[in-house]
Design a protein around this nucleic acid. Structure first.
Lengths: 132, 132
DNA sequence: GTAAGTGCAAACGGTTTGCAGCCTC
DNA sequence: GAGGCTGCAAACCGTTTGCACTTAC
């Protein structure tokens, strides 16, 4: 049975207030700084449970680190800024239709897909030209 | 200056003969078993160089491990069987057009994308129904 | 001959786990 | 009060790195 604890409440609230993708370590640190410390192991365990339950999105970056973000239920993709971490939730089913068509063409079943866009948002690009 | 060594030749030949995605550790073991041992560190260093040069594709699986596969130059995506590792190289630019459009809509620049399909190929699905 | 390449083993960094004590229900 | 939850520290595991030795050119 699932129990509500101080730690889980703190993490859930932090995620609710954080629009961008964060690593488990970042979340752990943010919790400590906000005066609601939660053990790193607990952060990992809780994020894992939330990911399984579909309460958070998980993103793997290049070096293998996992990033988490609270999100609406249901499947979708993201456009993430590589500098500031801002994430835009994408709607539309272009990718879904593509995946379905490819799966049929090649006789694959139970096909899942991942698709993420990483770029530089307008603000970060502008900041660069202003000279820092 | 890039030098040709026994180790690099062995790895390149192994990759040429291996159609599916393999981890660095698997490749290291395959080399040892074939009587052409190459140090694990060298396998990693060489794969890293090949990835940078665009000579191999890199795929991150869920647990963060990296898989490598020799491939044609140029950008493309894959359909991979989760059971046997068979990989189909996908052509067409549906995903590329989608990425470009989304990037423009949201004022992002320098947008890169990842998109991979993972499913069960016909043979593996059939094997399951035959009762193993 | 020399500098790139290699192997080993140690270091690394994110993540997981064993366990004793804590706290929710 | 019982069993899930937590924190700590140790274990894990894929990957990277320092260094002395080897080898392609």
């Amino acid at each position: 049975m699932q129990r509500m604890t101080r730690q889980r409440a703190a993490l859930a609230e932090l995620l609710d207030a954080t629009p961008d993708f964060r690593s488990a370590q970042q979340l752990h640190q943010m919790l400590a700084e906000s005066g609601r410390p939660v053990g790193l192991a607990t952060v990992y365990r809780t994020l894992q449970a939330m990911a399984e339950a579909g309460d958070v999105d998980v993103l793997r970056i290049e070096d293998g680190e996992a990033l988490y973000r609270r999100c609406a239920h249901g499947h979708h993709h993201h456009l993430v800024c590589r500098e500031c971490g801002t994430a835009v939730e994408l709607t539309g089913d272009v990718v879904e239709r593509w995946a379905t068509r490819i799966a049929q063409e090649h006789d694959f079943v139970e096909v899942e897909h991942t698709a993420e866009l990483v770029g530089t948002c307008r603000d970060c690009a502008a900041r660069r030209y202003r000279g820092r």
